[in-house]
């Protein structure tokens, strides 16, 4: 095992897949010469050249469209959007095109493309630069949504994403890029649709991913000191969703909190809570609760941002409501 940072796991996955398959190439704003705003493509242009590692104009809709069109010709493009916030500019290409084409064209084509973009807030980037909007895409059939929380998951899932024949939105997190974790020396891939129980426990299930997974783990530590053993489930891919692992965990613990960075209103937690109560209504010992962002545009002021965003303490507070 080697310890590496989250952003390095991104780079390594892309590097390995580009070396393995000539059809894989990457483009986006500042991905080449400077190696990406978050260093995630560092060294790739030097290794693979400007033909396969392309700096683009600031034109997010066209960047995604280029990925779609080149995938139609048999290439396996990786389009980087500098952040998820700019992905909103490309929504028509992602939702109306990439997600729809295979189905509306009667299955005549595959679209083996990956759109990578980091989301999330936490560093006073204010309203337009703090989006955690994975729920929007989970609400859209036709695109896979992958949202890893650790370097290990990043590398294994990104390699799978690049080899996938379907469009994949691969959502990284700005705050996690510098976090470290163990990554095997040998090659490995992680399958889509397989959740990871990051911490086992018997009293309550916390479902969390990306940055919130780490908050959930912190919350579990705090709760353990109170004698409450929380199980932390990381779905890792929201589409496909490993619902079986989630529902069987909640069936055991009989209590559940969904912790997400996105807004609470019609968020991923709303969907999971609805689905879990459909299946477990008579087995639950408490209502399923949500920890999410306050339903306001993310504010700049540090104290207000902290108030708006979910964190470990807020998870603890919710869990104490249903376990005491």
């Amino acid at each position: 095992m080697a310890e590496m940072r989250y952003y390095q796991a991104v780079t390594q996955a892309i590097q390995e897949e580009m070396a393995r398959d000539e059809d894989v190439f990457i483009f986006g704003e500042d991905v080449g010469l400077v190696g990406g705003t978050f260093r995630a493509t560092e060294g790739l242009m030097a290794e693979f050249g400007a033909r396969r590692v392309r700096d683009t104009p600031i034109a997010e809709a066209a960047i995604v469209g280029l990925a779609i069109g080149s995938a139609l010709t048999g290439m396996r493009p990786i389009a980087e959007l500098m952040t998820m916030n700019f992905g909103i500019v490309a929504m028509d290409q992602i939702i109306n095109h990439a997600s729809k084409m295979r189905y509306m064209f009667g299955g005549q084509i595959n679209l083996p493309l990956v759109i990578r973009a980091p989301g999330g807030g936490w560093t006073q980037k204010a309203a337009q630069h703090s989006h955690a909007i994975e729920s929007w895409f989970m609400n859209t059939p036709g695109i896979r949504v992958v949202i890893p929380s650790t370097p290990y998951d990043v590398k294994g899932l990104l390699k799978t994403a690049i080899r996938s024949d379907d469009p994949v939105l691969f959502i990284e997190h700005e705050i996690l890029y510098n976090t470290k974790g163990e990554v095997p020396e040998e090659e490995y891939l992680l399958p889509f649709g397989v959740a990871d129980i990051k911490r086992p426990g018997r009293d309550v299930t916390i479902i969390a991913w990306s940055k919130m997974l780490h908050e959930a783990l912190k919350a579990a530590d705090i709760l353990a000191a109170e004698g409450i053993e929380a199980e932390v489930v990381d779905p890792r891919t929201l589409d496909p969703l490993d619902y079986n692992t989630i529902v069987s965990s909640v069936a055991r613990t009989r209590r559940c909190v969904v912790a997400e960075e996105g807004w609470r209103n019609v968020g991923v937690g709303a969907e999971l809570a609805a689905r879990l109560q459909e299946d477990l209504f008579y087995d639950l010992d408490a209502p399923i609760l949500r920890v999410a962002s306050a339903d306001v545009p993310t504010p700049y002021a540090a104290n207000l941002e902290k108030q708006a965003l979910p964190n470990a303490q807020k998870i603890v507070d919710q869990i104490l409501k249903i376990t005491l």
Binding site: I63, G65, L66, I68, G69, S70, A71, T73, G74
Partner: peptide, 23 residues
Amino acid sequence: GGYGIVGGHLPIAAGLGLGIHMR
């Protein structure tokens, strides 16, 4: 393909051109 969003297919056309170029 035929596409129902006015102009939405044009970046895809550019992508087809990029694919031809790459190959």
